[in-house]
Simulated assay, not measured.
Amino acid sequence: MATAVMMKHPASGMIKKGYFGFSWTYLFFGWWVPLFRGELGVAALHLLFTIFTFGFWQLIVAFLYNKQYMTRMLTEKNYVLADTEPVNTMAKLKLGIVA
């Protein structure tokens, strides 16, 4: 089950909700999830993989998608975890963040 964690962009102050753990949303809606989260390139790639694997891709990526999304947000888009300390600690542990 996915757990929510708040993230904040330090420069703009924008706050987003991220998740870690199994993605039921991705399991049921597949490539639409990255599309609605604003990741057009990722959505297109996931659509192609879903088509070529006849949907099997969707079953596998449901276990991986939230971690991949959070990693992209934290590293590429420079968001930081901005939830309570216990939630931040659990997110860092699940996402493999050492610092």
Rank of each mutant, 00 (worst) to 15 (best):
F22I: 04
K16P: 04
S12A: 00
E39P: 01
K77M: 11
A91E: 08
R37I: 00
K16W: 11
G21R: 05
A91N: 06
T89M: 01
F63T: 00
Y79P: 05
K92Y: 00
D83M: 00
F22Y: 14
A43E: 08
M73T: 03
V5D: 03
V87T: 11
F36N: 13
Y19N: 13
Y79F: 15
K67Q: 12
N66P: 09
I51S: 07
M14E: 15
F22Q: 00
L93Q: 15
Y19A: 06
K94H: 10
Y19S: 07
T3V: 10
R37S: 13
V87P: 02
L74A: 00
I15Q: 14
R72N: 11
D83G: 10
A82F: 12
G38C: 07
F29C: 11
N78V: 05
G30A: 08
F49D: 01
E85P: 04
P34I: 02
S23L: 04
K77A: 10
T3E: 14
V87Y: 05
M73C: 09
T53M: 09
I51V: 13
E76A: 08
F36H: 13
A44G: 12
A2I: 01
E85N: 01
V61A: 10
Y79A: 00
G96M: 03
M14G: 09
F56W: 14
F52H: 11
L74C: 00
N88M: 10
T3W: 01
L40K: 14
I97D: 05
